[in-house]
Simulated scan of single mutants.
Amino acid sequence: MTAQIAHLYATGCLALVFFQVALIAGAPLGAWTQGGRVEGRLDPKGRVMAALSIPILLFMALAILSAAGFPGLGWPRWTGWAALAVSGLSCAVNWITPSRPERALWGPVTTVMVALALYVMAVG
């Protein structure tokens, strides 16, 4: 069961990566990210922030997969705890953002992701 939960978490991270790629490519989703301070397409600084989040999301996905025992990874267990901590911070920020669309979408999504990561780290 832990492997399936880790896989769900990694899939969520991958979905977020695709969202970041869309932002970088100029999708008009500024209200749904980064506090909703930009309507429409993100400015260059916002796109850089989106690009910087991609390796972090990939790290988080791999760390949780490794914690669940996926073969070929073998990362130290602390990386899974770090991924859980970053997920928790992201969740908190998404619930307190001034952007209503961001809060409505990413608040619940990141809450589920925290629960998935917590399950893997607590049970795995």
Rank of each mutant, 00 (worst) to 15 (best):
R47I: 06
F59I: 08
P76F: 05
A63C: 01
S90G: 15
P76V: 11
L42D: 02
S66L: 03
G74Y: 08
A22R: 07
T79D: 01
V86D: 02
V21C: 02
V17Y: 00
P44K: 01
A85S: 05
T11S: 13
L84V: 05
S53F: 11
T11K: 13
L42S: 00
G88W: 01
L65T: 13
G12F: 02
A61M: 02
P55I: 05
A15D: 09
P28W: 04
A25Y: 02
K45T: 15
R77K: 10
I54M: 03
E39F: 15
G72L: 06
V86P: 06
W78F: 13
W32I: 14
M60C: 07
P44I: 06
L89A: 03
T33D: 07
A6C: 08
P44L: 01
Q34H: 14
A6M: 04
C13H: 03
P28N: 09
G35M: 06
L42G: 06
F19L: 00
A22S: 14
S53D: 13
G36N: 06
W75D: 10
V38I: 15
A68P: 10
R77D: 11
A10F: 03
L29D: 10
M49P: 12
A51P: 09
A67Y: 09
L42C: 05
G36P: 01
R41T: 14
G80K: 01
T79W: 07
M60L: 01
T79K: 11
G46Y: 00
V17T: 08
A10I: 00
D43N: 15
C13G: 10
Q34K: 12
I64Q: 11
A27W: 04
A25G: 10
L73T: 13
A6V: 09
L42W: 03
G69S: 05
Q20K: 11
G80S: 03
Y9H: 08
V86I: 10
R77H: 13
S53K: 08
C91P: 13
A83T: 00
A83E: 02
L52I: 11
F59L: 02
M60E: 04
F70N: 14
A31Q: 10
A82V: 09
S53W: 01
G46V: 04
P76D: 01
A15F: 15
G88P: 07
T33Y: 01
Q34Y: 04
G36A: 02
W78C: 09
L62Q: 15
G35L: 04
A10V: 03
S90N: 14
S53Q: 11
I56W: 00
A15Y: 12
W75R: 08
A61T: 05
V86H: 04
S66Y: 08
K45Q: 14
G26A: 05
L14E: 07
V38E: 14
G69T: 15
R47N: 06
G74D: 15
Q34M: 13
A6D: 01
G40N: 05
G30F: 08
G36K: 04
L62C: 13
A67I: 12
W75H: 13
A67V: 11
L14P: 11
P76M: 02
I24M: 04
A15S: 14
A68R: 03
A31T: 11
G26S: 00
L65K: 11
G88F: 04
L14F: 12
A6F: 02
S53H: 10
G74M: 09
I56G: 04
R47D: 07
R47F: 00
